[in-house]
Every structure is written in C-alpha cells, then in structure tokens.
Design a protein around this nucleic acid. Sequence first.
DNA 1: TAGGCCATCTGGTCCT
DNA 2: AGGACCAGATGGCCTA
Length: 177
Amino acid sequence: MKSKAKIRKQRHLVTSDQELPTESICSEQEGSEKSVGFRGRRRRKSIESSSGDTKRKKQSINAKEHNLRRLESNERERQRMHKLNNAFQALREVIPHVKAEKKLSKIETLTLAKNYIKCLTTTILNMSNGYLPDLEGAGPANSTILYQHYQQQHGDEDRDDHFTKYSTQIHKCRPVN
DNA sequence: TAGGCCATCTGGTCCT
DNA sequence: AGGACCAGATGGCCTA
C-alpha cells in the first residue's frame, strides 16, 4: 500500500535529487535548471546597507551577466552541498545506531559520531594499555596530546628518551588506508 | 497543525 | 578575479 506521505516523499526526492536512490545524494549532471527559482527568497537585512562600494560595483555589471554568474554560483553551491551530504551519508554508514531503519539527521550523525569515536578510543586504550593509533589529525596539538596520553599511562615515571621511544612506537602504528 | 529537518538561493567574506 | 565557504532566509515534506 502506498501512503499519501510516501507519495509526497517520492515527489520530493524527484524534485531535489533526480534519478537517485533515496539515501545516496549526488547529482552531477542534472540539476542546474531543475529547481532554480522556487525555493530560497532571502534578503539579508543587517548586512545589506554596509557596503556601498560593492553595490556600485554590482550596478556596473549588467543584469544578464549578473544573472548568469548567479546561476553558475548556485550550481556550484548545490554541488558543494551534495558533496557534504555524501560525506554525511558515508559517516552514517559507519556509525552503529539503534534504529537502523530510520535515517539519522545531520545533527544526530555528528553527535553519534563524536560519541562513537570517544567510545572506540576508550576501548582501544583499555585493550592496549596506552596504544594511540593515529594522531595525524591533531595538528600542532599533536605532541601535547601525545604527552598527556603518555602521562596518563605512565604517571611520573617518564624520562625524555622513554617518551621519545613511546612516541615513535605510536607513530609506527598508524592505520593503513 | 506545529515543529523538525532539509534543499536551495543568495550575498558577504575569505582564500588562492 | 573567481571560486570556496558561510550563514540567513524561505518554503516543502514529514511526523507526532
């Protein structure tokens, strides 16, 4: 049986993500004309008046060209958002969650991902007594984090060369992509 | 029907 | 200069 809601949902999907399966959102070729001009109609009030120079510049560009650039820019923005959504989808697929039949919202995805990472980190540390697999993303804070971790694991027994060995050992154990 | 969630448009700002 | 990024605005769909 097809519910009214289902039909409406399908219509929605066709409008926003043509020819795509429900959960995988990425439209590369089609899309530029499919939905232009019927959604956002925003006028920013607070910032609008702040740049007279910009306004004058814009008036010097003829309307047709401005329109064209706007359309191109919209298309790029759409593609960018599609990429972002793909990334969200990829993230959803690696997060275990209770209601598997229900699609996680973006905020739920991020929150669960954060919790999941915390949980995995704790588990790994517990299992390996101080094994920290990847610090690559930590940037400048890398060594600080590493040192904090070292202190947690070894308390006051640290010596410089001991720490160096420890750090080397951890960096050897990066996951393989 | 209200509220949540989402896609899209849009103009400003940042970055290359 | 032009593209990427950002965030506000808007309106559609869905669910409780």
